[in-house]
Nucleic acid binder design. Sequence first.
DNA 1: GGCGGCAATATTGTCAACAATTTTGACAGC
DNA 2: GCTGTCAAAATTGTTGACAATATTGCCGCC
Lengths: 229, 229
Amino acid sequence: MAARKSSSTVIELASANPGTERLLGELRRRIVCHELPPGARLREQDLANEFGVSRARIRETFGILEERGLIERIPNRGAIVTRLEADKVKELFEVREVLEAQMVRLATEKAPPETWDALIELFGPSMDETLARNDFDAYAEANYQFRRQCIAAADNEVLSNLLDSLYDRTQVLIRRLVLVPGRAQEGIRQHRGILAAMRAGQAEEAERLKRANIRDARDWFTNYQKYLL
Amino acid sequence: MAARKSSSTVIELASANPGTERLLGELRRRIVCHELPPGARLREQDLANEFGVSRARIRETFGILEERGLIERIPNRGAIVTRLEADKVKELFEVREVLEAQMVRLATEKAPPETWDALIELFGPSMDETLARNDFDAYAEANYQFRRQCIAAADNEVLSNLLDSLYDRTQVLIRRLVLVPGRAQEGIRQHRGILAAMRAGQAEEAERLKRANIRDARDWFTNYQKYLL
DNA sequence: GGCGGCAATATTGTCAACAATTTTGACAGC
DNA sequence: GCTGTCAAAATTGTTGACAATATTGCCGCC
């Protein structure tokens, strides 16, 4: 189960400035993969030293991270990585449910049907063996490819940014959820259905199935909450 | 048609710091109501002088405004208010469509039916007279109330923040769209239908109607684009 | 008159120092 | 031993100054 550097969502948006980009991207990465766990304190001077920049730039970066919901700042007390409460996770799922469904719908409407053949192959029978080997990295990578290609086909920057932001906040949970016995198999099964609808150009059906898929993920999460949070 | 200070969306989130809150809130207000029109240049020193703070705080505020999509920053060239292109508007509508529909669904599911009686009264026959008088402020205020009460009932902070952010970016367009002959009447009609479904506890039907409502608004916008942008 | 180069000005990018506030740790009293 | 008090240290909040870059205005030249 070699660590793969897959699934790194990238949000371009904020200032093309190369230095700021590196700083923001690296902090985002550490938070998203729990290298900086929820509740971890972020000291401005420490980070300034490590990245070789002044505290002013750290503070500006903190502003953006807070806006994205990745950290929380308390006046005069500093910044900590946002803790994920169970109800906040529920809220995130309620929003993902409709946004990912819309992503699939738009992708189906805007891209030619053969676009999805590669993904159908990726989610094909070979994926069953992959899962049988407990190769969760390969499974996560497949899900990542699905997201990326849908986002690209949906051709909607606003939607793309929102989904990336939501994904950042739930990425760790999703990776843990995959470990629950049976969840990955069910996820595969559902994605095959979604892709079949997309291949057939049935945008509305694909949207409905994707929505059901996220709702189901939320239900699994609720059931295994105590193991996942 | 006295100017009313209604419809000011408030995003609490960012740093409870009172000074920053004032700065961010005021800049947001000026951008949203086009007191600072799209393309307007924002000079750091000018704003620093006006608000009596240092440029560092202006810059941190700029980072947040850029993250919200309200301004764009070009390295070494400064910040300008984001211009709304026609395709960006289309993207915003594609996202609003599903988020507002979900808002209505969740509100219907989570709040008791009698919650909506006040809004049903507000959108009742008296609103026809209001529109006959071309009192668009009162109409905008009613729409604002609908939003606020749904948001409150939906009880989902993530959704609330996203909707506020989207609304900030389209607020001016919506206010202009109301001027198009017939649009306001149609909006009222559709909201009566949505509220009826909500009162009856038909969450799914309310969601469907709200979605159709936003799609319709998008279509009107497309048709009258040249007058609105 | 129009155009390119060049200096003067204006604006943004970065930083290090100082002030205000919170946290830490030592110490006396019960 | 526990607790409250107070000074020391650490951390955040804020600022003004300096460097780098872009814009503006001037002047000679074609």
